[in-house]
Design a binder for these strands. Structure first.
Length: 507
RNA sequence: GGUCGGGUGGCCGAGUGGCUAGGCAGAGGUCUGCAAAACCUCGUACGGCGGUUCGAAUCCGCUCCCGACCUCCA
């Protein structure tokens, strides 16, 4: 495969040339949501980031198996003391729902939102509850290998032994083993059953109140915090696979423990490239549905609130594609601060980009076939698009190049740049690449077109109105001409006059 | 308290030693009946203090501020 894709590997803390385990194939696992409430926009950012990564890998020609789980067994809340309760059970109890009813509802809404954001479905989307057997098997394997112990029906991972034998624990998150073993934070109470504070549960015996429970060789209970991802990634991608992604906040303990479990079960490092997306901030703080203990408010906004404008944070509604474009304007490993000004700017930038694409796609080649300096420059910019993406999926830089091409396209259309200096081949490559970057790689779509789709009447009426205005203008009847323009503007329709005629755009 | 990351022009956001990032906003101009759109030009930004270097936003030290993680979180 002809490319030079480099990926920043959290494990090595540097960019590495991407070489898949099996030529031409990529196995990618991304930690999905816990479906005990609606996703917030921060969750969406991670999935959009990995959607672009998924799309680009496919664009490069890889056959990608993309696995993203649905966590429908809640993670424990608080410490694993006697009051421990599963988040999903708790929410279900509060809402008077059967747990699976709650799970189903939020799973559907999750899919709906990601659909609106135009993310592609993963190849496999396994649920934790659907893989209890596999998880029990993995617990058994870890026990068999001597990296876990049983206490009162629960099973705990023996972290000190794992560290002693393999020394990889803490490598991913950059934690020092000593720090982990001598935890200083006050609110982290040691849990009686554990032999060591750094041990963690992989199977938990359920108490009477617990709604979600399954029989196992050790107790009627439920799987531990991090086990599902280990079990399901192994099942669908193998003991070793190429890419594992997730949010930065999962690095520790979730991913660290995943490695421990996989290694403990199989004896090898499971993942070649660990990728972590950074957090979406709201008002300079991490977006999170967990309420602030002091204020009782959570710093988050749901996609629906943002798209509908029904919120107290932003001045207006922002469309899903504007939000997606906004996300692409920063690198996935950087934090991104959501603000009204930034969204406003993104909205205008997004429209400019899409309009330019329309202009470009509507152009036919009228040159003489010769390649000149301009053609060479265009080819260079096109190549640069791929160089930026190959550099750890640098979407903001690729977008900057795309905007350079926006100017070129608009200038070519207006005749400010000579089409005669561009060969037909280059011109068509420009059209094709531009289109494919927008739609196939960045996953953007033209919302204005989508709105008017299937409505030939609108198009016909608009043409009629434009013709009438043109007539008025020809007669220097500026009153009529301006009245038409102003009235349309009231309806959010903007007319754009140019030498070739008048076009219109909604919004 | 421990660990890690970051502070870039009005806003967002790239950029790891010399070469215009980009978007939005702003100023001027071209075009236009007027506008809009489009195109052209413009801002001499890199938290502070030192140091290394011919040269630093980029490396080193100190310092201030912010954020994340430390067993719920994408």
């Amino acid at each position: 495969m002809e490319h030079n894709l480099k990926i920043y590997n959290s494990l090595s803390r540097q960019k590495e040339t991407f070489e898949p385990l099996h030529e031409g194939h990529v196995g990618m696992y991304v930690c999905g949501p816990t479906v005990y409430s609606d996703v917030h926009l921060g969750n969406c950012r991670t999935f959009v980031s990995f959607d672009v990564i998924y799309r680009y890998l496919m664009y490069l020609g890889y056959k990608v198996r993309y696995v993203r789980n649905i966590t429908d067994v809640g993670h424990l809340e608080g410490d694993t003391d006697s009051d421990a309760e599963d988040k999903i059970s708790k929410k279900a109890r509060l809402e008077q729902l059967e747990p699976m009813e709650l799970v189903q509802r939020h799973t559907r809404s999750f899919h709906h939102i990601l659909g609106i954001l135009n993310t592609l479905s993963p190849s496999i989307e396994p649920t934790a509850t659907g893989h209890i057997v596999e998880q029990i098997q993995m617990v058994q394997e870890i026990l068999d290998n001597g990296y876990a112990y049983i206490k009162n029906g629960s099973v705990y991972f023996n972290t000190p032994k794992f560290i002693q034998d393999h020394g990889v624990y803490g490598k991913l998150s950059g934690k020092r083993v000593d720090d982990l073993l001598s935890e200083t934070r006050d609110d982290l109470k040691n849990q009686d059953e554990k032999n060591d504070p750094s041990d963690f549960a992989i199977w938990i015996k359920a108490d009477e109140r617990h709604l979600m429970r399954w029989p196992s060789p050790w107790s009627v209970g439920f799987p531990g915090w991090h086990l599902e991802c280990s079990a399901m990634s192994t099942k669908y991608l193998g003991k070793q696979f190429d890419i594992h992604g997730g949010g930065m906040d999962l690095q520790f303990p979730h991913h660290e423990n995943e490695i421990a479990q996989n290694y403990g079960a199989c004896g090898c490092m499971p993942v070649r490239y660990w990728m972590h997306g950074n957090m979406l901030l709201l008002n300079g703080r991490k977006m999170s549905k967990t309420p602030d203990p002091e204020t009782g408010k959570s710093n988050s906004i749901t996609p629906v609130e943002l798209f509908s404008g029904e919120n107290e944070i932003f001045s207006k509604a922002y469309s899903p594609m504007v939000v997606r474009f906004f996300m692409l304007q920063s690198h996935y490993r950087s934090t991104l601060d959501l603000t009204d000004d930034a969204l406003l700017a993104a909205e205008k930038g997004f429209r400019r980009l899409m309009e330019a694409n329309k202009v470009l796609q509507g152009m036919a080649y009228t040159g003489k076939g010769q390649e000149g300096p301009l053609g060479e420059e265009l080819k260079k910019l096109i190549a640069q698009l791929f160089e930026e993406m190959n550099d750890d999926f640098n979407t903001p830089k690729a977008l900057a190049v795309l905007f350079d091409l926006v100017t070129k396209a608009n200038s070519l259309k207006d005749g400010r740049l000579p089409i005669d200096e561009v060969s037909a081949e280059t011109f068509n490559l420009l059209k094709k690449t531009f289109r494919e970057f927008l739609y196939d790689i960045f996953g953007l779509k033209d919302e204005m077109e989508a709105g008017a789709e299937g409505n030939g009447i609108t198009e016909g009426l608009m043409q009629l109105i434009i013709d009438i205005r043109q007539q008025a203008r020809a007669n220097k009847d500026w009153g009529t001409s301006d009245k038409i323009r102003d009235a349309l503007k009231e309806l959010d329709i903007v007319l754009k006059d140019s030498k070739e005629g008048t076009s219109w755009v909604k919004g």
